[in-house]
Design a protein around this nucleic acid. Structure first.
Length: 821
RNA sequence: GCCAAAGUGGCGGAACUGGCAGACGCGCACGACUCAAACUCGUGUUCCUUCGGGAGUGAGGGUUCGAUUCCCUCCUUUGGCACCA
């Protein structure tokens, strides 16, 4: 009798030993190629989620594999520890965010250890540690000094009931209400800090040097939203210049009115006294709505005539100026020329308010009439009603390569009324938060000298601990009696500290750099570590970060490069997203639904190896899906079978050499498949491949294979292939049952014998008219003539040929013979 | 509306470059073991069938000797963006 597989016993045992031995320490070693494998750092919410296991343990398996392949692998972990939940909890329960956060981190470290992952805990970094945010602050100062950080007025979401600013994720529902008290939020203008992400708009569109999922590339491209067109200056009748951006300069002659965003600075000036009251009322109404409400596409267009007129610079036409909330102040110049004949929105607006529609693009065979055309025409054609441009071809391609757009742009530029221009949807990054639990913004405001950075030798600006959490809407730092009072570093006079803190996305934009040397006190990172490890080779995490975090971290890196702080164009070479594990009911897991799967409980029941392998086996990693409680039985049984086949010493038998050859073939075929799949993140087929091999090993053992060299190789290879996915049982079997030298995790990945994967005989399928009719077994090196002959005379084939003359016989070596009659 | 990804047994999912559809596992059925049940082990498991075969990878069409795989149209689901001028 052998003892039963008991993960609760072996798993903690090995975890403790690996850690004591420093098995997973990653140190610079120029003799080996490096590999930086990174998984997105968790927020210390207090409990590890099954989603963390799903994200992290397959990434760990892959990192382990690469280590066995000879790479010097760094696989670090840390905590994104600043942020709102801890502060909201503090307002409610008066527990200090620091206390709560560190308690959560402690708990989660224990949970993370139970995964059996190869974290190098010496590189653990926590973003709310002063030794971490010291450098977040320092980096802010570098951005400020390089004119990449600036201040401007900007609206925030504000809850009038709680009297506080809210982050985007705290605003819920269609009516945009506060998550705590359900009061609809309003916009409030505050003076805030921004980073110039838009300086990098074009570069952020370049993905030529990274291997990222198409989906993320598409989302980021969308997010940056580059549009080519032209900017053109119109003049009001009072001769004020009014710049507009358009993607369709070829339709300038069809501009029959102009629309300004209600917030546009020229609105007051162009408004005729007769219309002022209505305009003011409209402005007020628009201000109450926020961008999301205004953006509802199904909403009917609204707007108001200002009484003012502008002159179309291309034909001197006098056109009315309207204001409407479908024009956004935040995009382009906040003013548009409206060409109702060729723009759906302008068309809808013109029809509603009875404005003129003049077609200026016409496809062949059409004769548009502005009075009667039912919809705007967006397609290609030739220009009409456009003076000297009449007859110019307009294709349906976007941007400057369109001949019509190109021709008009050249002319505008020559004439000086406009120029080719680009517009982006991307906005600068607003980083101010009116909150306590974040990295301080190391800036000092002096009445005489303006904003001054805190001298670098005085960093970090520490968060004071004795603060009150009151839902006042002000940062608790502002309410602190003394903290904000300081002296100006420039003139020495009295001055005040910035009391807003930084968006936590700032902390997470560079944690991969802090991991390099978490305790380094002379900069963001130790340059020696940077030179060896960077860039990140593989970055894994959730697709929900496709735009925000992953754009910010690219910005951080590119800005750092331009400031001379670091090198290279991109921080992360390869990116892969995992899917999401849902509750057993197919819904997103949440406490309120009661469908949360607790990983600790699963580990208690089945062991970490079972949870790891189930998560790898049960899903396409990139897709995820519902947790199936009964499905984990499959991998549990498999692990038990592994235990028993490596524990029982079967008597050596006298096996048929064919059995041994076939066993060895399967071993090497599996090795080939597993190596491929682990590199390409196809974790489910790694496990199924290993299951198949085990099934074959069980059969071979029944056939007497135990005791042979083939059997020994199978056992040895099996455990080395198993080691990345189920590290504990692999170690136990390797060292304890087979008595091989500790540790299986420091073994090299098995060597593939390509010859051994080959077969001597193959099965060719025989098709008649493309339908499978028979199978024939032939030598692997069969000649085409022999194969065809064997197929033709096969009994089943004969039956379906029915004596007809084969018209054609197709032979695909190693695959099939298809007889066409 | 626009962009992206995906639709394969009762279920999760396999299938290399166009070549045996359904690997592996769950579930289910039957059998062995057991007083019995669980565990474990074995066998079977896409559907229809007159047992010859026929149909079958969301629907329809196309290319091909041959299509889950390539092309076109459509439907559905998921994610993202959404009056971006």
């Amino acid at each position: 009798m052998t003892e039963k597989y008991n993960p609760a016993e072996i798993e903690p045992k090995w975890q403790a030993k690996w850690e004591a031995d420093g098995l997973y320490h990653a140190d610079i070693d120029p003799s080996r190629p490096k590999y930086y494998a990174l998984t997105m750092l968790p927020y210390p919410s207090g409990d590890l989620h099954i989603g963390h296991w799903y994200a992290m343990t397959p990434s760990d398996a892959r990192a382990r594999y690469l280590r066995m392949k000879g790479f010097n692998v760094m696989f670090p972990i840390g905590f994104d520890a600043f942020g709102l939940p801890a502060e909201n909890a503090a307002i409610k329960s008066k527990i200090h965010p620091k206390e709560r956060t560190y308690a959560n981190i402690d708990r989660m470290r224990g949970q993370l250890r139970s995964m059996g992952a190869m974290w190098d805990w010496r590189r653990d970094a926590t973003s709310c540690d002063p030794e971490y945010y010291h450098w977040t602050e320092w980096y802010f100062i570098q951005l400020f000094k390089n004119d990449l950080a600036y201040r401007k007025m900007s609206p925030v979401d504000w809850c009038p009931n709680c009297n506080t600013t809210l982050a985007r994720e705290q605003v819920w529902g269609e009516d945009r209400h506060c998550e705590r008290c359900d009061t609809p939020v309003i916009k409030k203008e505050l003076d805030q800090w921004f980073f110039r992400t838009t300086n990098y708009a074009d570069e952020l569109l370049d993905f030529s040097n990274v291997d990222w999922p198409d989906r993320v590339v598409a989302m980021q491209t969308n997010w940056v939203g580059r549009s080519e067109g032209a900017s053109v200056v119109f003049y009001t009748e009072q001769e004020d210049p009014m710049e507009i951006f358009t993607t369709r300069p070829d339709t300038l002659w069809g501009a029959t009115f102009m629309v300004l965003a209600p917030e546009h600075p020229l609105v007051d000036k162009v408004t005729n006294e007769e219309y002022r009251q209505e305009v003011e009322a409209y402005k007020l109404q628009a201000a109450r709505q926020d961008e999301i409400q205004r953006g509802a596409t199904d909403k009917e267009k609204t707007g108001i005539f200002t009484g003012g007129y502008a002159i179309n610079p291309v034909n001197q036409a006098r056109i009315p100026i309207w204001i409407a909330d479908y024009v956004m102040m935040g995009y382009g110049t906040g003013a548009i020329m409206a060409v109702p004949a060729h723009d759906e929105r302008d068309f809808e607006f013109a029809r509603k308010f009875g404005l003129e529609i003049i077609p200026v693009i016409q496809p062949e065979g059409e004769l548009f009439d502005g009075e009667t055309m039912p919809v705007a025409y967006i397609g290609p054609g030739v220009m009409i009603n456009s003076a000297q441009f009449d007859g110019t071809e307009v294709s349906d391609s976007k941007g400057w390569k369109n001949p019509g757009i190109k021709a008009v742009n050249d002319w505008l530029e020559e004439k000086g009324t406009g120029k080719a221009d680009v517009s982006y949807k991307l906005r600068d990054w607003l980083i101010s938060r009116q909150r306590y639990w974040g990295s301080p913004i190391p800036m000092i405001s002096c009445e005489i000298c303006g904003w001054q950075p805190v001298p670098e030798d005085q960093l970090p600006v520490l968060l004071p601990e004795d603060v009150e959490w009151l839902p006042t809407g002000e940062s608790p730092l502002k309410l602190h009696p003394t903290w904000k009072n300081t002296t100006c570093p420039e003139c020495g006079g009295p001055a005040e500290r910035e009391t807003d803190t930084m968006d936590t996305f700032m902390c997470s934009s560079w944690y991969h750099l802090r991991y390099l040397s978490p305790h380094y006190d002379k900069g963001l990172f130790d340059p020696e570590e940077y030179d060896y490890w960077m860039p990140v080779d593989t970055y894994t995490g959730g697709a929900e970060h496709a735009t925000m975090h992953l754009i910010y971290t690219r910005f951080f890196h590119k800005a750092g490069r331009d400031m001379g702080v670091l090198q290279g164009d991109e921080p992360m070479t390869q990116l892969r997203n995992q899917g999401q594990i849902l509750g057993p009911d197919g819904q997103r897991m949440s406490k309120s639904r009661g469908n949360v799967i607790d990983p600790d409980e699963q580990v208690r029941q089945h062991g970490a190896d079972a949870v790891r392998t189930y998560l790898m086996f049960g899903y396409r990693w990139a897709d995820g899906g519902p947790w199936k409680t009964e499905n984990i039985q499959g991998v549990v049984r498999w692990l038990h079978r592994i235990w028993s086949i490596f524990s029982d010493q079967a008597e050596p038998g006298k096996p048929d050499p064919a059995v041994l050859k076939s066993l060895r073939r399967k071993v090497h075929q599996t090795l080939k498949q597993v190596s491929h799949d682990i590199e390409t993140f196809e974790f489910n087929t790694i496990i199924s491949g290993l299951m198949e091999l085990l099934n074959e090993m069980i059969e071979a053992r029944v056939a007497g294979a135990a005791g042979t060299s083939e059997w020994a190789e199978a056992q040895d290879y099996y455990l080395r292939m198993l080691a990345p996915v189920a590290p504990h049982i692999a170690e136990e079997m390797w060292t304890e049952k087979l008595g091989k030298p500790y540790s299986v995790h420091t073994q090299p990945w098995p060597e593939l014998d390509e010859e051994a994967t080959k077969v001597d005989e193959i099965t060719l399928i025989v098709q008649v008219n493309g339908k499978l009719r028979d199978r024939i077994t032939v030598p692997v090196d069969v000649s085409e003539a022999d194969a065809k002959q064997t197929a033709l005379v096969s009994e089943a084939a004969q039956r379906f040929i029915e004596g007809k003359e084969p018209r054609k016989v197709i032979y695909v070596p190693g695959r099939l013979v298809n007889i066409v009659v």
